[in-house]
Nucleic acid binder design. Sequence first.
DNA 1: CTGGCTGCAAAGGCTTTGCAGCTCG
DNA 2: CGAGCTGCAAAGCCTTTGCAGCCAG
Lengths: 164, 164
Amino acid sequence: MENHEHVHKHEVQETIQDIVRAMSAKGWRITDQRKKLAALFAESPGYLSPKDVYEYMRASYPGVSFDTVYRNLRLLSEMGVLEQIYLNEGLKFRARCRSHHHHHLICMQCEKTVPFEFCPMKHMSNFPQDFQVVNHRFDILGYCSDCSEAAKSGGTTDSLVPEA
Amino acid sequence: MENHEHVHKHEVQETIQDIVRAMSAKGWRITDQRKKLAALFAESPGYLSPKDVYEYMRASYPGVSFDTVYRNLRLLSEMGVLEQIYLNEGLKFRARCRSHHHHHLICMQCEKTVPFEFCPMKHMSNFPQDFQVVNHRFDILGYCSDCSEAAKSGGTTDSLVPEA
DNA sequence: CTGGCTGCAAAGGCTTTGCAGCTCG
DNA sequence: CGAGCTGCAAAGCCTTTGCAGCCAG
């Protein structure tokens, strides 16, 4: 456990450094605020809304403004450091996984993610010849163990996974 | 070809009727505008933005307002007649496929869709036991034959499909 | 008839932009 | 120091809401 935490902290530090390096490489300034932002995304296990980010930043920088948060989210997204997804009626952000290609289970309640290795693209062939594939998205939505109890009372309007 | 078109028109009529019936079953009034809306989604091969819908409706009903378009899109979505997806920086709508479960190739340019049968959920097992799966999304993005020429000049900022 | 639908107008969120001053490098 | 970052304020979408009149059923 102790060792696991140590490893985790090490990875977080790595990720922070990666993000900071990426910004630096683009010639952007490394302000304290941006370091804090890098730390937030390195630590966060799931998706964050602009509001989440704003709240978090405000804890350290009471005068922070929403527009700066948006500006930096945008910049980091355009850099490819963050990835966006539309979830629970809003745009959310998380650090793009840089290790290798994979997909996620996403908790619809707390928006935490769990990676898994299966990629459907490896199992598909026979695309229409005239369709030029560029990208794909595959997410599995549901409730994590922490949230599945609470979820039994109220669900969403989205359709369930059909069996056939 | 002639026969194919005939079949297509027949299907469109079916879909319109389905949508109208669904509205009627919920006790909603079948106004001319809503019939037109049903026809639009029955005919449309891809995703439509609220603006697209507004433009189309305005052709027949010059006085139509954006709020009515939104109201009806919302109602039809809540009914499950339409499905929403976040695409090209905006929320889009299309008639939910009622036939059977499948996924789509989506053209990032014109937002047309092509269905295919492969569903990754049938090939997956070994979910973390404590994650309660509710839903999934799997879309393949790219360019259809009509758009792939134009796309060679300018792409998007999204990542390509990694090979590993 | 009458409850629901519509257009109008206005408000509400979320996000972006212009600007002046401050700060990193 | 100078370009870039920040906060402030304001504007710009996109979407929703309140209201009075109209229309389908």
